[in-house]
Design a protein around this nucleic acid. Structure first.
Lengths: 342, 342
DNA sequence: TTGTAAGCGTTATCAC
DNA sequence: GTGATAACGCTTACAA
């Protein structure tokens, strides 16, 4: 007994009225007599009529869908941002279509092209690392030229004029290192990824800034660059801790920090007495590691909420004036066991 | 210089031909002369014409979208499943619309209703805990009655006839406990959530089965039930380890296990010599905890891939015969430092 | 109070 | 070879 989807046309035929009468009756229009309305509404309820969204989208030129393109869904930070986006989107009656670029330029472009043809009203995205490396933003420019709203978050670029939300990564790193210095540390290491990622560069800059401010010389040997976020394998880090005298470490992500702490412990160092650790992106590992990790919280959920609000505002405003804003969130340093706290 | 979205109609008018000629020319139809085709195709390329997906959806009664409804996006396991779904969906030309029920029955129903009206071709979902508690599946039944394909994963129910993918949770728990027993352990604890979640119940059953098989008496005092997955707060667990003599623990999730290990360590126990730990859902914490956690891997990504394949197969097959299958994946026990290994 | 018709953008059928 | 027309499901002037 398959109840096939019922349309206005079916109801109209069944009840011997016109389609527009049905349409109006279901919208409780004053034009229609009470009798007819009741009859039609009863029938519609009985057969569980629901208007077809696609038809409405076509008519209204509005889909009530927004696209989110992120580099990686398994990454806790993006997940957090997504949660914020989803929350606001749902509140405002939007669905969220999600695409993962897997850090690939091509996948980013393809996803965008597929969805830009009417499927969504706007985009929220964070650039893939490959895109940042290539420095090619034509797909984004085309989007904005077509008047499709776009909001960039976290991994953004100056090349594209659009709304942006980001974390003050430089300042997060600066304050972290400042804190370490004030705790009396002198040989502060930085564990980073290759620096084509905008955020990684910003964090390194904050590190430099703090050292400079306190007249501590930057030693290249205290900066460890690891190829990719996931590759904590190999013994680059172990060698680093064996060869360098280090009394504090700032890591650009949790994994590096957790891994670094284990190695330091294995080598007999006490945390935080001998070496302090601070790691970016306050995720699940920071809370549950042993010792727990002092972390720079990125406020991903808040970021997602702001991005969604910005986007929906653009979607729903009809003024053609192109005015963009960039919102910068301040990170928070969450003090835990891996640092000496006042 | 906003390049507004261009349609067949614009091209036709601009080139002085009919809409259908344009449509055919862009599809490289044999009917159209080479000259006309070239002219039209060139023009279309110049103005970056892309067919409107919404119009095509309306025409074809197919959206190439699938909906995924999960209880929680920040949860690593669901994220993993989602990754598998996304991968297959993209390969087969589908977009993924994601909704989060936040473990709420109402949100689950609402999300479903919004999307069931033409926005998507089918659903993949895992039941919210509230839905399992209420035991009310009318929204799912209505869906299938309307002929909309549905695949359930992980948290499923017998009440609804549809395709299903799940993990043999019972067996994962059974094998875990068997392993602990074979390691010589006698006082094996179970740390679980309230058991209205289908998976939690299954895991408890596996625990009982193993004990029974080895003639070990089930002691209620060795079973600790915690209210909710996130609430590891409070000292229920600490009291448990203080009051009960325990030599091994099976936890239904990572968080419980990591938390349990820290408490055990604080109380002076050695892991795994004094107490062994095994935790469900091999996530990021298991790999990076100290000691690393022996875990029951759920193969989330594989699960997602299978679910997506099942769904798309149903969407694209037109035979009306209703035949459903349930695929059961075997979990894998990943041995790490928290257990004694051969 | 109800119905007709045009339109959203596309495709498919059938004339010319 | 090309074009008119209907159709997908809905909304909304505008007639009747």
């Amino acid at each position: 007994m398959l109840k096939r989807k019922i349309t206005l046309k079916h109801i109209a035929r069944e009840l011997g009225v016109s389609i527009s009468t049905v349409s109006k009756a279901l919208k409780n229009s004053e034009e229609i007599s009470r009798d007819t309305k009741e009859k039609i509404q009863a029938f519609a309820k009985l057969y569980n009529y629901k208007p077809n969204n696609i038809a409405i989208s076509l008519k209204n030129k509005s889909t009530k869908n927004i696209a989110v393109i992120i580099p990686d869904i398994v990454h806790h930070f993006f997940t957090t941002v997504f949660h914020g986006i989803e929350k606001i989107a749902n509140e405002k009656g939007y669905n969220v279509i999600i695409c993962v670029s897997d850090e690939s330029f091509d996948k980013e472009v393809i996803n965008m092209e597929i969805l830009a043809n009417g499927s969504v009203d706007g985009f929220i995205m964070s650039l893939s690392s490959e895109t940042q490396l290539k420095n090619d933003y034509n797909h984004l420019k085309e989007l904005t030229e077509q008047g499709i709203p776009l909001v960039l978050f976290d991994r953004v670029t100056d090349e594209v004029a659009c709304d942006k939300v980001l974390i003050n990564d430089r300042d997060g790193a600066y304050r972290s290192v400042k804190k370490l210095i004030e705790n009396g540390k002198k040989r502060i290491a930085l564990v980073a990824t290759e620096d084509y990622l905008s955020v990684s560069k910003e964090r390194a800059d904050g590190y430099f800034q703090a050292l400079k401010e306190f007249n501590i010389e930057v030693k290249e040997s205290l900066i460890l660059k690891l190829p990719s976020m996931s590759s904590v394998e190999g013994d680059a880090m172990e060698n680093f801790f064996k060869n360098e005298k280090v009394d504090a470490v700032l890591c650009v992500n949790e994994i590096y920090a957790i891994h670094g702490m284990r190695i330091a412990q294995k080598l007999g160092f006490n945390i935080p007495q001998d070496i302090e650790f601070i790691g970016f992106t306050d995720g699940i590992l920071s809370k549950f590691s042993n010792p727990t990790l002092t972390a720079v919280a990125q406020h991903g959920e808040k970021m997602g909420e702001i991005a969604a609000e910005m986007l929906i505002e653009k979607i729903e405003s009809d003024n053609e004036v192109e005015t963009y804003r960039t919102e910068i969130l301040e990170p928070t340093i969450i003090e835990r066991e891996s640092t000496l706290n006042a």
